[in-house]
Design a protein around this nucleic acid. Structure first.
Lengths: 206, 206
DNA sequence: CAAAAACTGAACTGATCGGTTCAAATTTGT
DNA sequence: ACAAATTTGAACCGATCAGTTCAGTTTTTG
């Protein structure tokens, strides 16, 4: 078993091409909206080739989704550096999280995962685990350290982490998801982020 | 123009039957998953009759969604009574909101609205307006009164309302949407609600 | 009760789409 | 350069599905 091997099918050099094309089309059109012919065209590959890599549309979709989740997880790697004052760290974290969640890409991934997570058992789980949960654990870890350093006072650290993340989104995310175009000016973000940090510090600060 | 007239098509007596059947099937299978034949069968009506009421599947879907939004709005009517102590009112509101959001029905509506709100412009808008926004406005109104009575101290009442609602959900909603089956025990709810009320009162209480 | 309106059911159309097949062309490894 | 592996493109199959049509039945209405 060599390093590049995978338990899934993988033969030749156009594998990544196919995956990229599928990513583009699925993200643009959703699962039902995407036709396999479209994907093959977008990938610059014949349909026969596509089907030589992936046994069917569902599995191709799952593979794309899994790759996206990994991407998401990787991007979350470098989110927090501990040394600065708590409120500054929180502010920065809030900005980065919001930037991802509100991005066009983040929106599309979210939308498609919500839509398909009951038809594809495991998809929602995978997404949640490598997305929201990962972030939450990082934040909780940081809060834990801060409590140990005496700069925060928190009973239920996990709950506090969830609360902070929710406060960051306020309803900016919902507004965007439901197409309220007006909502996400920098001023709006600033207002929500400052509100979140202020509320959090007021409740848990020492 | 008599009281039962509507600007939309509406001829005979089986109108509501069709709408009910469509509601059932759309909610169960989503937009793409629902076949018109299924809907007609579920409604106990011939396909010809169905198409005599609604020009096409999309419009039928929109009509169902609109009706659901109105339902949702009506249920939110009797959410808050002002006389009790603030923390009790908030606790009660939180419980009712969570109960709806976490219900199987609430979940399905949410899922389908997220999934289709870019294909159906106006659907997301309508849902948001008659759902989340309505609730938020009610809460804000109550907070405003409470500030006037001197039992709360809030600068940005709208933001505070959003914050409270977010705190109520914590990530219970996300967990459920993404199929983490374990999450919504009464204990979990209690923990989140108490956390929300506590944090809110600590920050904005007098 | 008779005319008008609404409803039925079943067959049909046209289009889309997932997936297969295969002989010919291209690329790769040696 | 030659053989093995891979890719191609296009045709094709079977199924599903939105929407139509229509002759005949039921319900409403006046």
């Amino acid at each position: 078993m060599d390093a590049t091997a995978s338990q899934k099918v993988r033969k030749g050099r156009k594998f990544d091409q196919v995956l990229d094309g599928a990513r583009t089309v699925f993200l643009r059109d959703g699962f039902d909206g995407a036709s396999v012919d479209d994907i093959a065209r977008e990938a610059g590959v014949s349909k026969a080739t596509l089907y030589s890599y992936f046994p069917d549309k569902r599995l191709l979709f799952m593979e794309v989704a899994k790759a996206e989740c990994r991407r998401q997880a990787d991007e979350a790697e470098e989110l927090i550096n501990d040394t600065a004052p708590v409120d500054q760290v929180l502010r920065l974290a809030a900005e980065r999280i919001l930037a991802f969640i509100l991005s066009d890409f983040g929106q599309r991934v979210f939308r498609i995962c919500v839509a398909e997570s009951d038809r594809f058992p495991g998809l929602g789980h995978e997404f949640y685990h490598s997305g929201p949960q990962l972030i939450r654990d990082r934040v909780a870890e940081y809060l834990h350290k801060s409590v140990a350093r005496g700069v925060l006072k928190i009973d239920d650290v996990d709950l506090a982490a969830e609360q902070f993340l929710q406060l960051c989104k306020a309803d900016l995310h919902e507004r965007l998801i439901f197409g309220m175009a007006d909502c996400c000016t920098p001023i709006d973000r600033k207002r929500v982020i400052e509100g979140a940090v202020h509320m959090f510090m007021r409740c848990y600060g020492t």
